[in-house]
Nucleic acid binder design. Structure first.
Lengths: 146, 146
DNA sequence: ATAATATTTAGAATGATTCCAATGTAATAA
DNA sequence: TTATTACATTGGAATCATTCTAAATATTAT
């Protein structure tokens, strides 16, 4: 019934290995550009496309999670155990938060198949809270690193 | 201590009024383009920039919530009461889900000021589940309307 | 070695969003 | 009323992340 699964190979090239190593245990939630900037030290001729290609492969293999909490750019997270994310709307730092319990939605429509979920928290980290006064403005997160 | 707040006016122009009316009670979570496409019926000469400008203003006033669950494009939601979102990764439909209870993160770091939170659920809606067989692939959501 | 398959690369293309400079318009001051 | 100011609108250019493409390489199977 199902096709025999085209099973395409995944070759662990030097570039990919370096990306994997950089990501392994990394809790900084780097963006594609972060990864590229770091990797080009070792592979000066590396293409941005390679980073994206590799990230796509890793996502497909489930080795990686794409975190979309930061507006505009995707961030990547080695997919260990399920957890949530906390974004500082000032400096953009992302902190992992433990998952209290598997999240189940109330009022899931009949027949809807649930695949995954995640909780995003927004706030101001201690460092940023100290720097600025004590203002509000929850609206935008325009500032971005660089 | 605080500056007297520059207080800038918000003028309810015909365009803005139309946008507001379109959004009012709208649970379809339209994108900027959806709004533009709809509004140009009434205002053929309307600029895309006006839509974005208005959305920004409304966001700043808290009249609107920006939903980022759909990769690539922002979706907008008149900010009624807090609720969660459920995205069909096939057709892109977004369903509102009631908030069971105010969400509090476990393990919030000391000194971190929490501003807001939201839960995103991903799944396959009944209609899409019926169409296709019963495959898995949770990875990507490439298909987009249009 | 040869063919088949997968990967890398540079750069072009895409698409959403933002920016900008010129113009229009409403509200207010003189 | 007229001038002044502040806010809006518009079209198009600019930006930025991401995807795509075509050509060059590398790897694996035959």
């Amino acid at each position: 019934m199902k096709k025999p699964a085209p099973k395409k190979a995944f070759r662990l090239t030097p570039q990919r290995e370096a990306i994997l190593r950089f990501l392994e245990g990394n809790t900084s939630h780097p963006s594609a550009e972060d990864i590229y900037a770091r990797l080009r030290r070792k592979f000066p001729g590396m293409s941005f496309a390679t980073v994206y290609n590799t990230l796509q492969s890793l996502l497909g293999r489930g080795d990686l999670i794409e975190v979309r909490i930061d507006r505009g750019r995707a961030r990547f997270d080695p997919g260990l155990k399920p957890h949530h994310h906390l974004l500082c709307v000032r400096c953009g730092a992302i902190t992992d938060l433990p998952e209290r319990a598997p999240v189940r939605p109330a009022g899931l429509p009949r027949g809807y198949r649930l695949l995954s979920s995640n909780i995003e928290f927004y706030g101001i980290c201690p460092a940023c809270g100290k720097k600025e006064g004590r203002r509000e403005e929850l609206s935008c997160a325009k500032k971005r690193k660089k």
